[in-house]
Amino acid sequence: MSTLEEHVDVGVPIDTAWNSLHRVENYPSFVGGVRDVRTEEGGRAHLDIEAGGRAKGFDAEVSDRGRERVMEWHTTGGPDLAGSFSLHPIDRDHTRVQIRLEYDPATVREAFGGPKGFAQANAIERLVRSDLEQFKEYVERER
């Protein structure tokens, strides 16, 4: 498994950022390739995505530790992906949003296509960085 960690500082209070992360139906507004998200019973969500010219759907289980401001997720039924968002207050009006993504490079390539090896790691890092910047714009605009 490979692990990627990135963060972005947003100009909103921690509760605002936390609430925005929990509105998964809005993920298409800031997560590249996500076309639709539907929440389901029991902390589950279904995501329809397009990546590498391929349309795919997958299910994820989401759980959170509200007091710690950590939301964890993992796919069910493939591709095998897991991650977490953790929020840390910087001050009253600013929050650090950190993402941790765990993935198997071979599985990602098989499911979504794209480059191999180092080029793939760079592509995933750019995508995650872009999604974080889009989240920053989204949450600050929605404030």
Rank of each mutant, 00 (worst) to 15 (best):
G77V: 02
G42A: 07
A45Q: 13
H22N: 13
D15S: 06
G33L: 03
E140V: 01
Q134G: 05
T76L: 08
E50H: 04
A17P: 10
L21C: 05
E40D: 11
G53M: 02
H88D: 09
V10H: 05
R109F: 10
R23Y: 12
R126C: 06
V70I: 14
V31A: 04
P115T: 12
R100H: 08
R143T: 05
R96T: 05
A51P: 00
G117W: 01
V108L: 00
L47I: 00
V10G: 05
G43I: 05
F118V: 13
T75W: 01
G117V: 03
W73R: 07
G53C: 01
T107K: 07
T16W: 00
F85H: 13
G83K: 09
D59T: 04
A45H: 07
F135G: 09
E6D: 14
A60L: 09
Y27T: 03
G114K: 06
E125P: 01
D104A: 04
S63P: 02
T95G: 06
K136Q: 12
D91M: 07
I49K: 12
T75D: 00
A17F: 09
A119L: 15
R143Q: 10
T3P: 03
V108Q: 01
P79C: 13
G83C: 07
T39I: 04
E25W: 08
T95R: 09
H22Q: 15
R129C: 01
S2G: 07
G117C: 03
R67N: 15
E133R: 09
V24F: 15
S130N: 11
E140K: 10
F112D: 02
E41R: 08
K136G: 12
W18P: 11
H7W: 00
V62C: 06
A51K: 13
H88S: 10
R96Y: 05
H88A: 11
E142H: 02
G52M: 11
G113T: 08
D93G: 10
L47R: 06
D104L: 02
F58I: 00
T39Y: 01
Q98T: 07
E61N: 07
E140R: 06
F135L: 15
D93M: 06
R109D: 11
S29K: 15
Q120S: 11
H94I: 01
D48L: 13
L101Y: 13
P89N: 01
E5W: 06
K136H: 15
E133M: 10
P115W: 14
R44H: 12
H22E: 15
L127G: 11
H74G: 04
Q134R: 15
K116N: 08
V108N: 00
K136S: 13
D80L: 03
L4C: 14
F30P: 01
G52W: 14
